[in-house]
Computed example of a mutant assay.
Amino acid sequence: MNKISLFILMISMMSSCKVFKRNIILAGNPIFSGWYADPEGIIFNNEYWIYPTFSAPYEKQVFLDAFSSTDLTNWKKHEKIIDTSCVKWAHKAMWAPSIIKKDENYFLFFGANDIQNDNEIGGIGVAISSTPEGPYKDYLGKPLIDKFHNGAQPIDQFVFKDADGQYYLIYGGWKHCNIAKLNSDFTGFVPFQDGRIFKEITPDNYVEGPFMFIKDGKYYFMWSEGGWTGPDYSVAYAIADSPFGPFKRIDKILEQNKDIATGAGHHSVIIPENQDKYYIVYHRRPLTETDGNSRVTCIDEMKFDENGHILPVVITNKGVSSNKLK
């Protein structure tokens, strides 16, 4: 091989390496453009989906968008999968969607109107669609929860499917968190054995944004602490043997990095089946921003130590590697 041929071969190899590098490193954080917060990540039909809050003044939060991806790096926007025109009781502050597939339908739980007492109209609603991208329609024609129970503001709902197939709604703002057993068609709740419908499971320092998953037979309960407009917004967790706790706070695992972003919180976790990978999806505030609504959605890896404790999440600008689902 002469020197010219060798030079061309080297250039070709270097170019291939660059392409390979670009394929390994994701598009970066934030993962899509626009102000979005409170993201719930989930997998449907071998695709990643994220359902966030549109981060804007309350009166402009009258719809929800969704985003889908086959590889975690390239995201498709699905605009206005639901809006207040089809939820007659909602008129502002559509927040923190949570979604689950049951049978052939997708059920989208959302908060609306930011009610401050039991006399206001609003709370937690449910919408339904036959596809993950919607459009979604109001399922009940009224809120599923429209009152303060155990001091919990009816916002920040998370629908959780237990290992035995039972579905629960875990929710609550104002430093209180409840769990309730959903009935089979998600039109209401089934009382617990003691007759209560809403059981409080609030851990120390809880503020809002609950999330739960199961790992190695243990229930990991996570939540947000601090103020959502401030730099101290963060995520902590506890572990218990049941979804009812008791949940003793272990540690904070997600928080700001003053060199990257502030106010990292209100998260969810994506867990691909048959992979030892956990992706934490969360919002944070760019260093250039001071407006409370200037929040962006990001993904980083979440890892565990040998005892099953969650390690502090390293928030990054590069994000996570491409990971296509089979």
Rank of each mutant, 00 (worst) to 15 (best):
I4H: 07
L6W: 09
M10Q: 11
I11S: 06
L26C: 12
G28H: 12
P30I: 04
Y36V: 01
A37V: 05
A37H: 14
A37E: 03
F44H: 11
N45A: 10
I50T: 08
P52F: 14
S55E: 10
Q61Y: 08
F63E: 00
S68W: 05
L72S: 00
N74H: 14
K80M: 03
T84R: 06
M94Y: 10
M94E: 01
W95E: 07
I100A: 15
A112D: 03
N113H: 07
I115A: 04
D118Q: 10
D118C: 09
E120Y: 04
I121M: 15
I121Q: 15
T131R: 13
Y139E: 02
D146Y: 06
F148E: 10
G151C: 04
F160E: 06
K161T: 01
K161Y: 09
G165Q: 06
Y167T: 03
I170T: 04
I170F: 12
S184Q: 14
F192I: 00
Q193F: 03
D194A: 03
R196F: 00
E200C: 00
Y206H: 07
P210C: 08
F213C: 03
I214A: 03
Y219C: 00
S224T: 10
E225L: 09
Y233I: 00
Y237W: 12
S242N: 13
P243K: 11
F244S: 01
P246Q: 12
F247V: 02
F247K: 07
I250Q: 06
I250S: 02
N257Q: 05
K258S: 11
D259V: 01
D259G: 04
A261T: 09
G263A: 13
G263R: 13
G265R: 09
H267K: 13
H267G: 03
S268M: 03
S268G: 15
K277L: 11
R284F: 12
G292V: 05
V296P: 01
D300T: 05
N307S: 12
I310W: 07
L311H: 08
V314F: 04
T316R: 07
V320Y: 14
V320A: 05
S322I: 05
